[in-house]
Amino acid sequence: MTTAERPLVTTSTLGLGRSDSAATLVRAAGAQAPAAPASAEATSTLSMHSMHVERLAAGFGRFTAVDDITHTIPARTITAIIGPSGSGKSTFLRCLNRMHEEVTGAWAKGSVRLGSEDIYAARIDPVQVRRRVGMVFQKPNPFPTMSIYDNVAAGLRLNQWGRVPTLDEKVERALQQAALWDEVKDKLFQPGAALSGGQQQRLCIARALAVEPEILLMDEPASALDPIATLRIEELMRNLVRNYTIVIVTHNMQQAARVSDRTAFLMMDDDRAGRLVEQGPTDEIFTRPRDKRTEDYITGRFG
């Protein structure tokens, strides 16, 4: 990827700060105008809560997992990433908060802009990126040695030396946002691992929300849960989308249809690299897919 292909907007304050002066906003709008569909969404892409992926390629060693993905994630929407297994859905998701590079041999090219800032720019600290782009994993992974309270507070404590002011309130708010407060308020200091699977996953969501990210990435968050717990997570997502931008990877098409506003369909090409086949509003993708492969996939003809 040459510098010419990089986005124009790279100014910012120290470590992914939040400078969006009018000038950068205008330039940013200019840079991504061709990619964004014209509508109300075009303005929302400028928000701090939006992401814009351009010509992203990523993989491991010689293997390319996803290639040439250009995609816009509008603010305060739920975007579902669907596709057959091996199509690079998770890799794509993990590129959005630079978790992908934590795997040995992993590489990524292209640009991913959070608001107006390229998170793959050289001076960007991935640690700071992850505080603004939170993540929930496939399997609930609470810290087993910590209490429920400490699990939620874990991210907050990272940024503070000594006592964190208003920690109690922040923990309570995160648990309430994750619709877990009522169930755990009397046992905050019991180990998080003692909760049921669905509760554990909501605990992990609370943990991610506590650091007040703008974006929440969810990698098949309900795949390890029973139908009732899954439903609760989906309800929760619909509530959270008022304040957060959510990107969810799912292999469950009903789930994508139920919860998401927009859907992106990834599929691997003959070279085994995942590419973006089609994306758009969820109801369009599921009722009037433009691409034959999308239609085949959502009607269950393969995958």
Partner: peptide
């Protein structure tokens, strides 16, 4: 942001 630097260090 000073925190971030300190943590990195």
């Amino acid at each position: 942001m000073v925190h971030a630097l300190r943590r990195k260090l």
